[in-house]
């Protein structure tokens, strides 16, 4: 294994790290995901997913199931493709001209990359919360009512009010904003804005919620609130979350998927990943030797 001798000087440390790198397997040799990427009651099932940006391949042969009402965390070093993979799940990558997705991606057995499939209702079923809070420059009320309005979920004001209230309650934001629903959403604090975005997403009653590093722009208190919220939401929704914080993955998820250079290395129950990882790369990452 790696050098364990207690080396004090800087040169010695360098040697240790170099040993470490040598000890790691070559990523090109990895063709299979270790652990349990698939599950029984899969809400979304992905097989052999390849993603290309122009000529450059970003995702290699990824196969992963996301179970119903499960929280799956995706972790890995920067540029490992976890956000790219997440954005495939509701076809947000369509907005990038040069991006091309191959393989089978199914939502309840239905191929989401079927050319005949309408992407608009798909995105209503698979909602997304982004890295940076992005409330629309509208009032808090209109932000939440935006989705229900465009999807024609209701025509009656009273019903819409109710949807707005329940969504804000589910996002634990109601008590903070109920007196100023008509003030602009951009005037809220960062954490509140992100919860507003979550409320906006759940207002269209999606089945799956994708979260792309939802707390990376937030302070620890706001982060704690969002994490609490994720636990509550998992009762009703299936959640896939990309995060840079391993503590966060450990706190909120049922299963954890570790990505490395576009490959899915390991998927296991979160507890197992963080206490007894199967793959050396996973271990190296969670013990903080790179990433």
């Amino acid at each position: 294994m790696e050098a364990t001798a207690n080396i004090e000087n800087a040169t010695g440390e360098k040697v240790e790290i170099m040993n470490d790198v040598v000890a790691q397997p070559n990523v090109d040799d990895i063709h299979e995901t270790v652990g349990s990427p698939f599950c029984e009651n899969a809400k979304m099932a992905m097989r052999d997913v390849q993603v290309y940006y122009g000529d450059k391949q970003a995702i290699f042969d990824v196969g992963l199931d996301i179970g119903k009402n499960e929280v799956v965390a995706m972790i890995g070093p920067s540029g490992c493709g976890k956000s790219t993979f997440l954005r495939c799940l509701n076809r947000m990558n369509d907005t990038i001209d040069i991006c091309r997705v191959e393989g089978s991606l199914k939502l309840e057995g239905q191929d989401i990359y079927d050319p005949k499939l309408d992407v608009v209702p798909l995105r209503a079923r698979v909602g997304m919360v982004f890295q940076k809070p992005n409330p629309f420059p509208k009032s808090i009320y209109d932000n939440v009512a935006y989705g229900p309005r465009i999807h024609g979920l209701t025509n009656r004001k009273a019903e819409l009010d109710e949807i707005v209230e329940t969504s804000l309650r589910k996002a634990s934001l109601w008590d903070e904003v109920k007196d100023r629903l008509q003030s602009p959403g951009t005037g809220l604090s960062g954490g509140q804005q992100q919860r507003l975005c979550i409320a906006r997403t759940i207002a269209v009653s999606p089945e799956v919620i994708l979260m792309d590093e939802p707390c990376s722009a937030l302070d620890p208190i706001a982060t704690a609130k969002i994490e609490e919220l994720i636990a509550e939401l998992s009762e009703n929704f299936t959640i896939a979350i990309v995060t840079h914080s391993m503590q966060q993955a450990a706190r909120v998820s049922n299963r954890t998927a570790y990505f490395h250079l576009g490959k899915l290395i390991e998927v296991n129950d979160t507890e197992k990943v963080f206490t007894n990882p199967e793959h050396e790369l996973t271990e190296a990452y969670i013990t903080g030797r790179f990433g």
């Binding site: 608009v120 209503a124 079923r125 992005n134 629309f136 420059p137």
Partner: peptide, 27 residues
């Protein structure tokens, strides 16, 4: 207008023209 606003609107399942009319142009 930040791309994140368009993404937010598209991610809620609105079409491109809805996004333009309701989010991009007002912004």
């Amino acid at each position: 207008v930040p791309q994140s606003l368009r993404d937010g609107s598209l991610g809620l399942g609105s079409t491109q023209s809805e996004t333009i009319r309701q989010v991009v142009i007002p912004a």
